[in-house]
Computed example of a mutant assay.
Amino acid sequence: MFRLASLLLVAMTALEVLDSAGVLNIGFVNWRPVLYMFLLWGIALAASQILARGEIGQQTLFLLPALLFTAAMVIFPTVFGIYIALTDWNLNAQSGHHFNGLDNLRTLLSDSYFWNALGNMVFYVLTVIAQYAIAFALALLLNADIRARKFFRIAFLMPFMLSPVAVSWMIGKSIMENRFGPAATFARYVGWENPAFFTSPWIARTSIIVMDSWVWIPFILTMLLAGLQALPTDLKEAAKVDGANRWQSFWEVTFPLMLPVSVTAIVLRIIFELKLADIVINVTAGGPGGATDTISSFIYREYRDRSNVGYATMVAEVYLVIIIVFVTLLLKAVSRFMQKMT
């Protein structure tokens, strides 16, 4: 039963793909037949588990909704995206879409704007180390016995409560506006004759990462502060009794104990940084000349401005592969580093 349903699902999917590519003229209007066959395949899978494995099969059924949801919402869109990436599909074209093989990939490999956006992503990801250092310093400050500590904790968390879109308009479009913005006014006061935060490539990149860091440093700060509060106080007291100063106590005791929390915060922040798009889209739209573009904002502009669905999907699929490879290598490196430290 399950094998028959699987064959029918594969056959129906193949027919839909061939019909959409124009190889066959079956006359499918949409992809509903594949959806119905997928539902039939799920029913056959559930029935086969019960018939073949009995009570254990019934227990397995509790996992099937999650597995089928993952297949429907992750695997199928990814496979369908690969199909779109292999087509010449522009929404402005009257001819619709047609299969063009690896032409979109060849275009991507020679696209200077894509490589520029990828280089920008490397820069943005590397700034996570600076964000971590700032967050760690703030976490140590907020963990100390200072006045108005509760007030400062709330104040430093406020940027994380705001939407990046709101931040981009509040700071990028208002405070950093080059004519009447407070930041530009202050820059002219200290001697910058024509303050423009988004005309020079490097100044624009720095401005973007400053806004992004202002939003996300509180996220790292929260994790590090929680880790600091969970540290045993007797170790610090023992180091103090042994004659260690503040720097030695931090470097020899606090920092090594905080490594698991630190690594987790950095890895999560890198993953979030790889998705950076909203601030860039709202403030600079990738300008000047693509200098601030990220891969996500570049994909967005390909969809919105050029209606180039096929090429934008190819960029998205290639970027997905890059992220998977990069995160896999990053996690392996982190695992080896943690094994050496412990």
Rank of each mutant, 00 (worst) to 15 (best):
F2Q: 01
S6K: 11
S6E: 08
A11V: 01
A11D: 00
A11W: 00
I26N: 03
I26W: 02
F28L: 14
M37P: 02
W41L: 04
I43L: 15
A44N: 08
A46M: 14
I56Y: 00
Q59H: 15
F62R: 15
P65R: 00
T70C: 02
A72D: 00
V74L: 15
T78R: 12
V79I: 15
L86D: 02
S95V: 08
N104Y: 10
Y113D: 14
N120C: 10
V125L: 12
V125R: 08
V125Y: 08
A139L: 03
L142G: 10
N143Y: 11
A148P: 03
K150S: 15
F151G: 10
A155S: 05
S168R: 04
I171T: 06
I171C: 03
I171Q: 03
N178P: 15
P182I: 15
A187K: 06
A187P: 02
E193I: 13
N194M: 00
F197E: 08
T199N: 07
A204I: 03
M211T: 06
V215Q: 04
P218K: 00
P218V: 10
M223A: 13
M223R: 09
M223I: 15
L224F: 02
Q229W: 01
D234E: 14
L235F: 10
E237Q: 11
W251F: 07
F255R: 04
P256D: 12
S262C: 05
I266M: 15
L276D: 09
V280I: 15
T284Q: 11
G286M: 04
S297A: 14
Y300K: 10
V309Y: 13
V309W: 09
G310N: 12
Y319L: 08
I324V: 12
V327N: 12
T328I: 07
L329R: 12
L331T: 03
L331Q: 03
Q339N: 08
T342L: 00
T342A: 01
